[in-house]
Design a protein around this nucleic acid. Structure first.
Lengths: 145, 145
DNA sequence: ATAATAAAAGATAAAACTATCTTTATTATA
DNA sequence: TATAATAAAGATAGTTTTATCTTTTATTAT
């Protein structure tokens, strides 16, 4: 469904959020150890997210990735779109260049329905809430609990 | 959502079905021209499907791909699974190796819901019906109508 | 100032996916 | 039996994604 980059990105951002509520910046090494992801690859994903203003980062001692007030309304939809683009929400399910209501592919309606539900789900899921669940200990980010 | 191979495969199989109802075998060149897909790549996908018994094929003059009676109950679910595997239906949305009810990832429930709906949709969509729609001319397989 | 720290950026490589080309095997029919 | 048609199989190549390694830049603390 999502790319590896997106999976790592979501896991990392949820973890950053869960730590940030404690007012901490958190380094890439810690993040990757916690979410069990490849360090440099994950770093590039987070750097891109920082450039887009979805998270923040600081260099130097005690630096790391963190969240600022303005970023607090982040939803899964925005995060997924920032990493994987909108192809999954917009593209034809069978890869047709032209596919629309008046010129539909064979699974146009069925696919649209699923996709709309996915979009609603992602839009109504806030990173803030997911991070809160993580802190509560009801959900996990790696097989090492 | 689906791989390119899966997109081509679905389009090709729907087209084969739509022609087969007219009692014809259909060659790879015709298929690829009709669905606008790369010939040798599509051939390999169909060959694999034939090996799995999802479609049939015949070599030699007037040969090609076709459908047999026993294959008539094919659903999208079986087709997608044969090409892309079951990762999309079984794997964790965030790529965790261990993710279950007792050890859920942060989006376990939300993702499960979407995935179950996708599965139901694919299971309740028969290739036969999609091919019928194609014959009726209410849906299309390429931008060249 | 200097050294240490950590993200950012650049370069390279490995793996997977997509695509194409060539050769082989099989089958119908002339 | 020879030939042509067609799928199957094998080999190669291009592209994208994923992953790693190295160097640079910015920041902090001493």
């Amino acid at each position: 469904m999502f790319s590896k980059a997106c999976e790592y990105g979501i896991r990392a951002v949820i973890y950053i959020w869960s730590q940030n509520s404690k007012g901490k910046k958190i380094g890439i090494k810690d993040i990757c150890k916690e979410i069990d992801s490849p360090e440099f690859f994950t770093a590039k994903i987070l750097q891109a997210l920082a450039r887009k203003g979805i998270i923040s980062s600081a260099k130097g001692p005690n630096g790391g990735f963190y969240i600022e007030k303005e970023q607090e309304k982040l939803t899964l939809l925005e995060l997924v779109e920032a990493i994987d683009g909108n192809q999954i929400f917009e593209g034809c399910g069978l890869g047709l260049k032209v596919c629309s209501e008046v010129n539909p592919c064979p699974i146009h309606d069925q696919f649209k329905s699923i996709r709309d539900q996915l979009k609603v789900m992602l839009h109504s899921t806030s990173i803030r809430d997911l991070a809160a669940d993580l802190e509560k200990g009801t959900v996990f980010l790696s097989r090492f609990n």
